[in-house]
Design a protein around this nucleic acid. Structure first.
Length: 125
DNA sequence: GCCTTGACGGCAA
DNA sequence: GTTGCCGCCAAGG
C-alpha cells in the first residue's frame, strides 16, 4: 500500500465534507490533512477521483477560484454546470466567487475536523 | 537514474 | 493588482 494511497484517502475524506453550494481550495484541503505544502499533491490525488470515486471533486478549485481541473471532467463546461447547479456564484466564466462560497473544513471550530479516515499510524507516523 | 510535467501556493519585486 | 520565481512531491518519458 503506497503512502500516496493514504494521502488520497484523506483528500477524499475532506472533499466529501464539502457542503453543497460551497467550494474549497487545494491549499485548504492540504492544510486540513496536515500537509500545508501538499496543495499540488491534492490535485494529483483528485485526478483519479474523477470517474473513479463518487466525490464532489468539482467543488475544488484553486486559490483564485479558477476551474483549473475542468478538463478532467471532459470539458470545463461540465464542471461549471455542476457548480451552477448547486447555485455557486461565478465572478467569471470559469472562475467562482470564492468570497461568497469558499468553505473552510474547520470553519465551525478552532481545530481541524476529525477525518472519516483513521490512520493506524497516527499523525506522526 | 535524470529531466520534465503537473487540478498549487507563498513570497518578493 | 500583476508578474516572476521557487518549493513541493509523484508520475511519466
Amino acid at each position: 500500500m503506497p503512502a500516496s494511497a493514504d494521502f488520497s484517502a484523506r483528500v477524499y475524506a475532506v472533499v466529501a465534507r464539502i457542503p453543497r453550494g460551497r467550494v474549497t481550495t487545494y491549499g485548504r484541503i492540504a492544510r486540513t490533512i496536515g500537509d500545508p505544502r501538499g496543495a499540488r499533491m491534492v490535485g494529483w490525488a483528485l485526478m483519479g477521483a474523477v470517474g473513479a470515486v463518487d466525490l464532489p471533486a468539482h467543488r475544488v478549485v484553486n486559490r483564485n477560484g479558477e476551474l483549473t481541473g475542468g478538463w478532467y471532467f471532459g470539458h470545463p463546461d461540465i464542471m461549471r454546470a455542476r457548480l451552477l447547479e448547486e447555485g455557486i456564484p461565478f465572478s467569471d466564466d470559469y472562475t467562482v466567487d470564492l468570497r461568497q462560497c469558499v468553505w473552510d473544513p474547520w470553519e465551525d471550530g478552532d481545530e481541524p475536523p476529525v477525518l472519516d479516515v483513521v490512520s493506524p499510524l497516527g499523525p506522526d507516523g
